[in-house]
Every structure is written in structure tokens, then in C-alpha cells.
Computed example of a mutant assay.
Amino acid sequence: MDVSRWFKSGLDCQLLIGLSAAQTTVLLFKDEQCLEQIVIPERLASACFDALHALLNQHNLKHPAVTLVLADDCYQHAELDKPSVPDEEVAAALQWSVKELISIEPDNMQLDYYDVASTGSRQQVRVIAAERQWLSDWGHMVVSQLRGELHKVLIEELCLLNLFDEADVPTMLLWQKQGGEVQLLLVHKQHLYLSRSLRGSANLESMASELLPSIIDSLSLEVQRALDYFESNLRQPPVKIVKLALPEAVRQLVQMQMQANLAVDVEPLETQAISGFSSPDDIAVLPILAARVEPAEVAAEA
């Protein structure tokens, strides 16, 4: 990561801001060091300004480079055929195509998209849509009130692609943050081929011990189905490894039982993105930390 460009433009730190429906998680970095992590029980820019301003003042910092990372409860998504128009007109065409699939009013919709994997002649895209006014308020607050620069607006699942090298073999990641379901992501050469939530898997770390084995067996079945789909339907090389970014309380048990259930290696995720970051909430902020990684090229296929 080339942080020198921030200082050339007068920026003296980095704010990574994870936005969810219930709260805002903030990591403050200067150079390569995380100075502080705070959680603000708000999602609106106006309600977060005082805490962010105080955080910067506390560390004698004035001009942050800001990256916003949206959790999946901050946007809506849909998959549909890619319009047959020039690339520069795709986003505008999609805005009207998703009117019946996205509940955000068209005039208040901030839309982006990426291509999805296809085995036939039809090219499909996945549309990501968030509330434009909400994002605009954040941009205005960052620039006009915090006196910083808004560099990127990202979504969690695409940030996680940064943790995988372009030359990596096909890999599955199982990731879970507190209170959420296990997220399954299937990555090959920094392309996201599958992304889905595994139902019935919320709060693994607080489940009764007698229930966990059957839940892990169910998760193993969902994993196997995804592995088969990736190889058979998408015609990709077989996955060799499943990496776990799960709460520490259940990680070892999940690893042992899944290893017995599946014919692939199962191991904990180890990544430089969280090396040296000693917070017990490492897994919860993993996508936010991954947003700091500068990949050569990041793309998504599903």
C-alpha cells in the first residue's frame, strides 16, 4: 500500500469506516499502525461526526483519507441480464431494469454492478444499489466537515477478495461476523464465483454444544453442494482448500468436523491483512481491514 500519496495531498491518516444498519465501526490508521478502533451505534453521517471529529483530535490528526465499507444490510442486490448497450451506458440502463427488484426509489438509487459467471451465451450482472442521499451525506460530511477525502465506497464481500492472491488455486472462504450467518465465498484468481449466506448458522459461538455437530454437518453439506456446482456447472478446476474466518470459540471444532466430512483441506484463514492486529474482533472487522490491501486487479464473477 502506497500511503505516501496521502501525505503528498495533505492527508495525514486513514479512516476505514464500516457501515451497517445498526452501527458504524471505525478503524484509524496512521502509516501501517492501527491507532484505535471505535464503534458508534449510528449509521447516519450527521450522528457520527462528533465521534469521528473527537477521534481525530485525540490523535492530533486533521485530514483523513476515508474508505467506506458497506455491510450487506446497507444495500440491495439483484442479478439480471446485462443490457446490450455500450459499457458506459450499462449503469444507466440497469437503473430502470431493476425498478421491480429493488425497493429504493430510482431518484434515490446509487447503483453499481459487476459481471457474474455464466455457462451459456447470456451475460448476467449483479447489481448493487444503496440510498444515494445516505451516501451523499457521508461524502459531504467527510469532505466539508472532517476536511478529508473520500477515496472509495466498497462492499464487504468484494473487500474480502483482496485477501487472495491472483495466482491462488480455487479457494472457499467461510466467514462469520457476530450475530450474522456464515458467509460462503468461492474465489479463484481474485474472482468471486459464489457468494451466499448459509441459513441456520447464525451465532455459532453461542449455540449449545450438543447442537453444534449437527449444524456443522449441515454446513458441510452446503459447502459440498457449492464445491460441486463450481466444478460441474461453472466448469472450473476443483477447489483444494476451505479457509475458515470464524469465531475462535468454534473454529477448531468446525475445522475438525468439516475436515472429516469433506475431501478437501480445511484450515483457518491466515492473512497479512490482520497480522499484528490484536483486537479480539479481528474476524468482525476482516472486510474493513481487507479494504486496506491494494490488489493488482479485483473482479467478481458471481
Rank of each mutant, 00 (worst) to 15 (best):
L11Y: 02
C13P: 01
Q14I: 08
L15G: 01
L16G: 05
I17S: 01
G18C: 08
L19Y: 01
T24D: 05
T24P: 03
T24R: 02
L27D: 04
L27F: 04
F29L: 13
K30F: 09
C34M: 12
C34I: 09
E36T: 08
E36S: 10
V39T: 11
P41H: 09
P41C: 11
E42H: 12
R43Y: 09
R43C: 10
L44Y: 06
A45C: 02
A45L: 01
S46H: 06
A47L: 07
A47W: 03
A47R: 04
A47S: 11
A47P: 00
C48W: 00
L56I: 02
L61G: 01
T67N: 03
V69C: 08
A71H: 08
D72K: 10
D72G: 09
Y75F: 15
H77F: 15
A78R: 08
E79F: 12
E79H: 13
D81S: 13
K82Q: 15
K82F: 06
S84L: 14
P86K: 06
P86G: 05
D87P: 05
E88S: 09
E89G: 00
A91K: 14
A91R: 11
A92I: 09
E100P: 02
L101A: 14
I102A: 12
S103C: 09
S103W: 08
M109L: 15
Q110R: 15
L111A: 10
Y113K: 06
V116G: 10
V116I: 15
V116S: 13
S118F: 13
S121C: 08
S121N: 14
Q123C: 11
Q123W: 07
Q124M: 15
Q124F: 14
A129G: 07
A129N: 14
A130L: 11
A130W: 05
Q133S: 14
Q133D: 15
